[in-house]
Design a protein around this nucleic acid. Structure first.
Lengths: 157, 157
DNA sequence: TATTGTTATACTCTATAACTATA
DNA sequence: TATAGTTATAGAGTATAACAATA
């Protein structure tokens, strides 16, 4: 695509991209969450995986990759770290020797409410400047976007 | 923090964190944008910096670091890449030899509408499932959050 | 052949901290 | 001393692609 070098350069709505705002706010929220999680030697991606495992009780790397919209390679790396931390276990399925069954350990289950509290506090820090109606509206809009675009890890409500 | 191992494990509102939804949706939007920008050999952070420079006409690494809430080191690396691509120039201020003045080159200015079009298309792809009122509501909510938390690169409207 | 999972490699984004050069 | 900027290092997060084991 070429533009006429003599023409005045008008770029429509440069400041209006919703994606831009979404990224700025999301980065601030997740960055703050990541810093808080460090006190428990955890990362955001680890929390997301633990949280999924907590809801499902048991899962496999492939299932998680699908539901979290990540590659199996990415899941594998996080699973590795969580095993090293002793928060999850991994055992071969008796039905299919290729399949690894992941589950929380006792330590992993005990970590959940601790990390959830950090998530609660972070959410409160960022979103308590909105009133309940606004938070609900934001949740609806994000849920609508997630649903529409097949962002899959939708909690069963 | 310790939990009673015998007690039933109830984690309040695990699925309700707004930060979680924000991150899932933002990652999908920015990931898609990043993939589209690749066709023009550009990254999201590069676009954000170019866009800032376009709005300010001229700036310095320190100013950008402040307005984009990034470290000077991070800015420095992106500036490097943009110079290599021939999209921005860098000259020492005559007022203060420590200060570098950054500005778009002709090629950089010509890249802006091309990249802006990719941003437009990406925004359309993700947000056209919302109606105008919902998009406006989302914009207001994100703007409110950004304002409240000192996310600084607020376009002058 | 297709699928599950791992590994190797690489890139983006970002931070921290040490450093250089100016002021 | 303080500030502007760079550089070195590190780590999170992610992807691609080659690979091994199993089906």
């Amino acid at each position: 695509m070429e533009t006429n070098p003599g023409a005045p350069l008008f770029v429509s709505g440069l400041e209006t991209h919703l994606g831009y705002w979404l990224r700025q706010v999301s980065n601030a929220v997740s960055g703050s969450f990541a810093r808080s999680l460090k006190s428990r030697q955890a990362s955001v991606a680890e929390w997301v995986l633990l949280r999924s495992l907590f809801e499902r009780k048991q899962s496999t790397p492939s299932e998680l990759a699908h539901s979290l919209t990540m590659t199996r390679g990415a899941i594998s790396k996080i699973v590795d770290r969580l095993q090293t931390k002793g928060w999850i276990t991994c055992k071969t399925s008796s039905d299919d020797n290729r399949v690894q069954l992941l589950a929380l350990t006792g330590a992993g289950r005990r970590a959940i409410p601790i990390l959830a509290k950090i998530a609660d506090e972070n959410d409160h820090k960022f979103f308590s400047c909105l009133d309940a109606g606004e938070r609900s509206e934001l949740r609806n809009l994000l849920g609508k976007l997630a649903g529409y675009h097949g962002i899959r890890d939708v909690p069963v409500e």
